[in-house]
Design a protein around this nucleic acid. Structure first.
Length: 420
RNA sequence: GUGGAUGUGGCGAAGCGGUCAACGCACCGGAUUGUGGCUCCGGCACUCGAGGGUUCGAUACCCUUCAUCCACCCCA
């Protein structure tokens, strides 16, 4: 085989796309219930959008972007996520002039240049929602409950919802310093990657897998104790609203969102047993993003969830999305008779227009082989139009389950099958 | 970017220096000429991811490369 698909990409075959369509339908349904509307933005954007929107210091921008120059010397990038694009559209298409907040959802492919592994691909698919234009903690709770409801409705077990607040430009820098002061004396004992993290992202040290780092971090100051009044109050409200609605969350002060734009609420939904990449959904508040992109200060919340990870989770718990085979008819004709073949084709067309899933043979196979083919695709009925039958305008309808067959006028076949 | 594992027909899978590269599933054809599912018979890899090397001889040993899987980093 000469040409293969690019590394980290997937072909989704019919047996896969059936499940995808089912999940997508469920997502659209939930969005309808929660009163979100779909937005579709370009798959590539001006590179600067992501540098400014996602953050220059993030891994995404530093090493994961698919960036190219087009024929007009513009630097473009395949979207690594969709929040920046949605915010860009909010400004460019003047959605701030509409009723606020604007509640949008999207789904589609995203691209990140990473080494593939379980649950991680270079082209992957996300569904996400954004509520743009309100600081209300009810908005945070709304999207969290939307995600929570989705996974529960899908029947995914062993879910955990982690909740945290990462503060805001008022309190996070301060907490960051407090944390650095705490770790500084132990700097040389930390694992190599945490020594890197010390400057870049000290909050991550708290979440290190190394036991040594874990132990050193045990007595570290907590983010909860270092939030400003506004953030602390917001966080309290989100927790209360979720508790009242019956959404079971776990506080996780060690959970840090990687993207620069997050403020206040951060949350993540994880499911065990799907490998190292256990996060199926992540999101939070990004009150500074729209302003960063040149708009008025516009508080917003959103999340993104990974489509591929949904299927990993379902597979890990031994579930498959049931996709039923609907009733189908196979129209058989005598192979060496063009008249019967044409009659079969015409009947086939008629049946299809009646919403009956219908197949026929293309190759002029023997009757026997056609029946075999019909059997293989689980046809419920076959209609046999042979030379003898056609001579007096008749056809045989055979029920494949019990082998019963009756002869009737071709004109009556449609009605007969419709009544089954 | 780093590390580990793997790479034999459509799929699963033997062989691990020397007969025609097992076998199972799937697929195609046939078993008195127009009737399927069971059974039986037959067919289906000039080739063992690719390139190079060692050897009288390599699918098997060595090197390179590519791909896949898994893990790290990070994230959906």
């Amino acid at each position: 085989m000469a040409i293969t698909r690019p590394r980290g990409t997937n072909d989704f075959l019919p047996e896969d796309t059936k499940s995808w369509q089912a999940v997508e339908a469920m997502l659209r349904q939930i969005c309808r219930e929660f009163a979100f509307e779909e937005i579709r933005t370009p798959i590539f954007e001006d590179t600067d959008l992501f540098i400014r929107g996602v953050g220059n210091t993030t891994d995404i921008v530093q090493k994961e972007m698919y960036t190219f120059t087009d024929r007009g010397e513009r630097s473009l990038t395949l979207r690594p996520e969709n929040t920046a694009s949605v915010c860009r559209a909010y400004l460019e298409d003047k959605l701030y002039g509409r009723i606020q907040p604007v509640k949008l959802y999207y789904m589609g492919p995203m691209f990140r240049y990473e080494r593939p592994q379980a649950g991680r691909f270079r082209q992957f698919h996300q569904f996400g929602v954004e509520v743009i234009g309100t600081i209300s903690p009810y908005a945070d709770a709304e999207i969290i409950s939307l995600a929570w409801e989705f996974y529960n409705r899908l029947g995914i077990r062993n879910l955990r919802l982690y909740l945290n607040s990462v503060g805001c430009p008022n309190c996070r820098p301060r907490y960051r310093e407090v944390l650095q002061d705490y770790f500084r004396p132990h700097l040389d004992q930390l694992c190599p990657s945490c020594q890197e993290r010390f400057e870049r992202n000290p909050l991550r040290i708290l979440d290190c897998k190394s036991e040594i780092c874990q132990n050193i971090g045990k007595e570290a100051p907590q983010i909860f104790d270092n939030l400003c009044d506004s953030c602390a109050d917001h966080f309290e409200q989100v927790k209360r609203i979720l508790a009242t609605a019956g959404v079971e969350y776990m506080l996780n002060p060690r959970m840090v969102r990687g993207l620069d734009y997050y403020t206040k609420t951060a949350f993540e939904i994880v499911v065990e047993n799907i490998g190292a990449q256990s996060a199926v959904c992540g999101g939070g508040r990004y009150d500074g993003l729209i302003e960063e992109l040149g708009g008025e200060p516009t508080p917003s919340v959103g999340f993104a969830l990974g489509m591929e990870r949904i299927f990993s989770a379902l597979k890990a718990q031994g579930d498959d999305i049931e996709v039923e085979d609907d009733c189908s008819v196979f129209v058989i004709s005598t192979p060496d008779n063009e008249e019967t073949r044409k009659a079969a084709f015409a009947l086939c067309y008629d049946l299809r227009r009646l919403d009956i899933k219908t197949e026929l043979d293309y190759d002029g196979k023997s009757i026997k082989a056609q029946l075999k083919a019909a059997n293989r695709i689980n046809a419920e009925y076959t209609v046999i139009i042979g030379s003898e039958e056609l001579a007096d305008g008749q056809a045989i309808v055979k029920c494949m389950k019990d082998g019963e067959q009756i002869k009737l006028p071709i004109a009556d076949v449609k009605q007969y099958l419709l009544e089954r």
